[in-house]
């Protein structure tokens, strides 16, 4: 018996469907398609919040605000969280806002350290003066609560073993009193802990960058103003990337390749502590740094292909079921007669 078209559709093997997905994801990627994306209000709110800290710091040089940046994600979600981290850290370093960083779990530490120093290097940031990596904040709720008064006794040392009381930046920033914002880039429910312990108890403002899976859970807190904006999945990262690129072009006003090549060329690098990063850029490193500036937007073109592909699959699958059911109902009625 000859197969009907809907039987063919409904019997397509899973491996072929996955193969189709592979093609629609990889082709835009290899073709280096980059998508401009519209900027949503929730991403803009987060961007504007960091801008407002910069403006405050400009006006109040003796009582500047810092940002506490929490690396609340692990290796399994780096494709989604990394572009958020890169663009938000770029924004903070471009605006020269003092930065404190911690990570709540052991597997997150290496990720935090490499990403932080990588971006700090692109803006000649000095460890201890412009930024500090505090290291492991475990159990994190104890650290969140102690930041209400002073987190230094809990840390003892930073990630590199430096005494927290000897780091210049930490003599000024050690509690929520001097923190303009907490940024949690996460793949977990960590923003809910921030909400309970930092926002509810100490009125600390919080912005979140989350994987798309968790975004729906956090929307009510963005609408209520408990979170100061949110980056939702790769789309949110692409939006922020776009906004920071505009800012970077405005501030640096130079081709990024030239900027990075010249960054450490004419300065005495012997004064820079090489423990945190090597103060020079090779050609390959510059290319990687340029690619990272559009990582989320390149991903969005593949996302577009994948979404269209799934919509087509859903439509065809439902049409197939509809016509198959119609046919079988017709056959049943005919047999009954």
């Amino acid at each position: 018996m000859k197969k009907k078209w809907y039987d063919v559709i409904l019997q397509i093997g899973k491996p072929y469907i996955y193969l189709g997905m592979f093609i629609v994801v990889v082709v835009p990627f290899l073709a280096k398609c980059e998508m401009q994306t519209y900027e949503t209000d929730i991403s803009k709110t987060m961007y504007e919040k960091i801008e407002s800290i910069y403006k405050y710091n400009q006006k109040n040089a003796d009582s500047e605000m810092a940002i506490l940046f929490a690396f609340d994600y692990g290796p399994s979600t780096t494709p989604e969280n990394d572009p958020m981290v890169y663009s938000v850290l770029r924004h903070i370093f471009l605006r020269e806002i003092p930065l404190l960083v911690w990570a709540p779990y052991v597997p997150y530490l290496d990720i935090a350290e490499t990403r932080l120093n990588r971006i700090a290097k692109e803006y000649k940031a000095i460890y201890g003066k412009d930024y500090v990596f505090l290291g492991l904040a475990y159990p994190v709720d104890a650290y969140m609560i102690s930041t209400g008064s002073d987190f230094r006794p809990l840390f003892n040392t930073d990630y590199y073993g430096n005494d927290v009381y000897s780091i210049p930046l930490l003599s000024k920033y050690y509690s929520y009193d001097n923190l303009g914002l907490v940024v949690s880039i996460t793949s977990t429910s960590m923003p809910l802990f921030w909400l309970q312990y930092a926002n509810a108890l100490f009125d600390q403002e919080i912005s979140v960058g989350t994987t798309a899976v968790s975004a729906a859970d956090f929307y009510p807190f963005v609408s209520s103003g408990q979170f100061q904006g949110m980056l939702a999945g790769l789309k949110g990262a692409a939006e922020y990337e776009q906004m920071v690129e505009r800012l970077e072009n405005k501030i640096i006003n130079k081709d990024i390749k030239v900027y990075l090549s010249d960054l450490y060329r004419d300065i005495d690098t012997s004064q820079i502590n090489k423990k945190y990063f090597e103060p020079k850029f090779g050609a390959e490193e510059i290319q990687v740094a340029i690619n990272r500036r559009s990582q989320a937007r390149r991903g969005m073109s593949s996302q577009f292909g994948a979404h269209i592909y799934v919509i087509i699959l859903i439509l065809f699958g439902n049409l197939g079921y509809y016509f198959k059911n119609k046919e079988s109902n017709k056959t049943t009625v005919t047999k009954a007669r």
């Binding site: 997905m21 994801v25 990627f29 399994s76 979600t77 780096t78 494709p79 989604e80 990394d82 994987t211 798309a212 899976v213 975004a215 729906a216 939702a232 999945g233 790769l234 789309k235 991903g299 593949s302 996302q303 994948a306 979404h307 799934v310």
Partner: peptide, 12 residues
Amino acid sequence: YTFMARISLFIG
């Protein structure tokens, strides 16, 4: 959003 997250990991 869940679908977007899974595709993002594949893209990564």
